[in-house]
Amino acid sequence: MKIERIGIPLKDWDIKINYGIKTGFNDAFIIDGAKRRELIDQDPKSEEIIRPILRGRDIKKYGYNFADLWLINSHNGIKEKGISPIIIEDYPAVKKHLEQYYTQLEKRTDKGCTPYNLRNCAYMEDFFIPKIIYPNMTKFLPFVYDNMSFLTNQKCFIITGNNIEYLTAFLNSSLFKYCYRDNFPELQGGTRELSKIFFDKVSVLKISKTINNQFKELILKINKLKQDDCSTKDLELNIDNLIFSLYGLTNNEKREIGFIEIH
């Protein structure tokens, strides 16, 4: 296929694809906004380890629906980088909240150095740099560029590395859906499984930093419009046309692909 021939498999890109955070017991570690405010009121230091979280169902094409859910990020540190685990005694309000679930936390097979800590996550820092977030199972193949340091649950993957703004655009493009939708196994109800093993085989044209910055400008505009609940179709069409041009598609090929929206 022409698209595959001129691209490079994502497994050979300078990127990493990783799961979201697995808590082992979401009822304890994922809280709503009201509980977050309560814990911060009790001890302002609590805010240091309470971070906004997105779930797979929250991810939309170029956007997200934030459900006012927050993760208690009592991480287990990264020994190789000299990052120490969170000491829960430093956060008494959070500790008191978690203590009501102690029996369940202690039974987890994926806990950290104490029942209050999350399991080891060697790529924890990657959540705090620009990244792509997408759901592990979806009908719609949505991808969002995140520069707001959201954490995600295990129903998402994150992509970090070079030229991810362009990659966000490509993965949301009509060209990607036309060429690669059927690369991902179809499950019950038309849902697709977007596991890393299938992404590794997706071939994408490599571009320069200058071109990536052009896409970054467009992506940030779309992000802003999405936050303001405004239409982004014109910008999405612009991105499709830019990608068509990069791939050197003929007018007939462009017409055959068209503008693909999956609802």
Rank of each mutant, 00 (worst) to 15 (best):
Tyr178Arg: 08
Ser203Pro: 04
Lys177Cys: 07
Phe184Asn: 05
Pro185Ile: 14
Ile222Tyr: 03
Gly190Glu: 03
Lys196Met: 08
Asp200Leu: 10
Ile197Ala: 01
Lys177His: 05
Leu194Pro: 01
Lys196Tyr: 00
Ile164Met: 07
Lys201Trp: 12
Phe215Met: 01
Ser208His: 05
Phe176Trp: 00
Leu220Ala: 09
Leu194Gln: 01
Asp228Lys: 15
Ser208Ala: 08
Gly189Val: 08
Lys196Glu: 10
Ile164Glu: 06
Val202Pro: 00
Lys221Gly: 03
Leu220Glu: 13
Leu218Tyr: 06
Asn212Pro: 06
Gln214Pro: 02
Asn172Thr: 04
Cys230Thr: 07
Lys201Ser: 14
Gln188Asp: 11
Asn162Phe: 11
Lys216Cys: 11
Val204Asn: 00
Tyr166Phe: 13
Asp200Lys: 14
Lys201Asn: 15
Tyr178Cys: 09
Lys216Gln: 14
Leu167Ser: 08
Ser195Asp: 10
Gly190Leu: 04
Arg192Met: 08
Arg192Ser: 09
Lys201Met: 10
Gly189Thr: 00
Glu186Pro: 03
Tyr166Val: 00
Leu220Cys: 10
Gly189Asn: 02
Leu167Met: 11
Asn163Trp: 04
Gln214Arg: 13
Phe184Asp: 03
Thr210Gly: 13
Ser173Ala: 14
Gly190Asp: 01
Leu171Glu: 09
Asp182Lys: 02
Lys216Trp: 10
Lys196Ala: 13
Ser174Ile: 06
Ser195Gln: 05
Gln188Asn: 11
Tyr180Asn: 01
Thr210Asp: 12
Val202Tyr: 01
